[in-house]
């Protein structure tokens, strides 16, 4: 596997920015790691908005993804991972250069009983749906989100399926004629 630094000289240029991001996070800072795939920053939710604001100002204009992880039974239990990349929109021409943008990962750790993370929808409109998905699947609240509803599961769904304490089977419901919803009997009695 080729050396990541050789392929991406941009990564070396990120070091000053990482220091600034660490500063911006303040007391919410947890750790900064140069992971093999990209540089990453781990913070508590309080530091998210200043960090993301700064990253956005320094060219990280493309929010690749917002994804949740449940680390149960570890604490803090929930992680929300933001992947950013910097696409320069200046090179808009048919034969412009092929981009080799740097990437950045921000991991935010929040805990029960009420896991909550500030929303970044005001910085990237694309954060709207993935934040709804994390809310739907993990029950993590995004403060300041304009439209925090379930997205993949039905609105009347109970529970958050991607939490580790949500069973893979046995707790589902059955759709019965007439539109009402009934419980599925336990597995043992089903024939």
């Amino acid at each position: 596997m080729p050396d990541a630094g050789a392929l991406h000289p941009e990564r070396a240029a990120l070091a000053p920015l990482l220091e600034k991001l660490t500063e911006a996070a303040g007391t919410a800072f947890l750790e900064a790691v140069a992971a093999p795939d990209m540089d990453e920053l781990a913070i508590r939710p309080e530091g998210l908005l200043p960090v993301m604001d700064l990253a956005r100002c320094h060219g990280f204009n493309h929010l690749l993804d917002v994804g949740g992880v449940d680390h149960h039974p570890l604490t803090p239990r929930f992680e929300v991972a933001y992947h950013l990349t910097a696409l320069s929109a200046n090179s808009v021409e048919r034969a412009g250069p092929i981009l080799h943008p740097p990437r950045l990962r921000v991991r935010v750790f929040c805990d029960e009983p009420e896991p909550a993370v500030p929303s970044v929808t005001h910085l990237w409109p694309s954060a709207n749906w993935p934040e709804r998905e994390v809310f739907d699947q993990f029950g993590i609240r995004f403060d300041g989100h304009p439209d925090l509803r379930r997205i993949l599961n039905p609105d009347d769904f109970v529970g958050h399926p991607l939490r580790k304490d949500f069973p893979l089977r046995g707790q589902a419901r059955r759709f019965v004629p007439g539109g009402r919803v009934g419980p599925i009997p336990p597995l043992e009695t089903r024939r």
Binding site: L7, L87, S91, V92, R94, G96, I98, L99, P101
Partner: peptide, 15 residues
């Protein structure tokens, strides 16, 4: 994205 002029392709950017 490339239809707007940004030449970003993962095969080239992160081979």
């Amino acid at each position: 994205l490339r239809a707007t002029g940004i030449r970003y392709d993962v095969r080239r950017a992160h081979p």
